[in-house]
Nucleic acid binder design. Structure first.
Length: 230
DNA sequence: TGCCAGGCCGGGT
DNA sequence: ACCCGGCATGGC
C-alpha cells in the first residue's frame, strides 16, 4: 500500500508534501514539450479494442496496416470479425506480427464478449469497473496492459496504463525498483495523480512518445531528454 | 545487419 | 512464485 487515501485531494496539495510529486511534474514537462497526443488512434471503441490486442510487443505502424486490411475487407465490426475463422483472420492481420497468436487472442476476446454480453460493447463497458477488469484478465491473451488499454482507451474508464516504456522511463529516473511489477507501477501513478480519464489518457500517450524518441532500449539516458532534470 | 517494437502464455525450476 | 523461450512482421 502507498500513502493513504489522497485521491480526493486536489493536485496542488501534493506540492506541500515532503516528497515532491515527480510523477505530476513529469506529466507537466511532457505536455509542455510534446503537447496533446490525441490518443488512441482509432475510429471506434471496437477498433481501439482490436488495436490493443494487435499492438502487443509490436510497432504501431505494423498494427495500422493490419487494421487497414480489416477495414478494406469491411470486417472491422464485432459480428463480422466474430464470424470470421481464425485462419482467415490471421491472414489479414499478418503485418502485425505474431499473427496466428493474435488471431487466436482476438477470437478469445470476441468469444468472451459474445458469450457473456451478447456481443455488446455497451453492455461490456457498462459493467462494474473492478469486475470488468478481472473478467478481461481471464481471457487467454489479455494481460494487464491490454486489459487496461481497452478500459482506458476503448471504454473511457479511469485506469492508468503501464507499459514497457513506462517502466523503463521510471527506472532511469530512479522512481521504481528494477524488480517492480505492473500493479506496483500502476499504483505509483494512481497514488500520485487525481483520478481523471483525460489525464491518464494523455500521460500514457506522452510516456510512449517520450520512450520512442528519447528512451529506447539499450541506449543510455539522453542529454536532451525533456524530463532529464526531474 | 541485427536489434527493436505500446505483451502474454506455458512449461520448467 | 519466478524465469525463460516462443511467437513474427517491418523499419532503421
Amino acid at each position: 500500500m502507498g500513502r493513504k487515501d489522497t485521491s480526493a485531494i486536489p493536485s496542488q496539495h501534493f506540492a506541500s508534501c515532503d516528497m515532491p510529486n515527480k510523477i505530476l511534474e513529469i506529466h507537466h514537462a511532457l505536455f509542455a514539450h510534446f503537447g496533446p497526443q490525441h490518443w488512441w488512434p482509432g475510429d471506434s471503441p471496437f477498433e481501439v479494442m482490436v488495436g490493443a490486442v494487435l499492438t502487443q510487443n509490436t510497432n504501431w505502424t505494423n498494427v495500422s496496416r493490419a487494421i487497414s486490411n480489416l477495414k478494406e475487407a469491411d470486417l472491422l465490426s464485432f459480428n463480422k470479425l466474430h464470424a470470421l475463422d481464425a485462419g482467415a483472420l490471421a491472414d489479414l492481420i499478418r503485418p502485425a506480427g505474431y499473427y496466428n497468436l493474435k488471431a487466436g487472442r482476438l477470437k478469445n476476446l470476441l468469444d468472451f464478449i459474445a458469450g457473456e454480453y451478447g456481443g455488446s460493447l455497451t453492455d461490456l463497458f457498462g459493467t462494474d469497473l473492478h469486475s470488468l477488469r478481472e473478467q478481461l484478465l481471464t481471457v487467454r491473451g489479455i494481460g494487464p496492459e491490454t486489459a487496461d488499454s481497452i478500459l482506458l482507451y476503448a471504454a473511457g474508464k479511469p485506469v492508468f496504463v503501464v507499459d514497457a516504456y513506462t517502466y523503463r522511463i521510471l527506472l532511469r529516473h530512479d522512481l521504481v525498483a528494477e524488480e517492480a511489477r505492473y500493479d506496483e507501477i500502476q499504483e505509483l501513478f494512481t497514488d500520485s495523480l487525481p483520478e481523471d480519464v483525460q489525464l491518464y489518457n494523455e500521460y500514457h500517450a506522452l510516456l510512449v512518445r517520450l520512450g520512442k524518441e528519447y528512451c529506447k532500449k539499450n541506449r543510455p539516458a539522453c542529454e536532451t531528454c525533456p524530463v532529464k532534470d526531474i
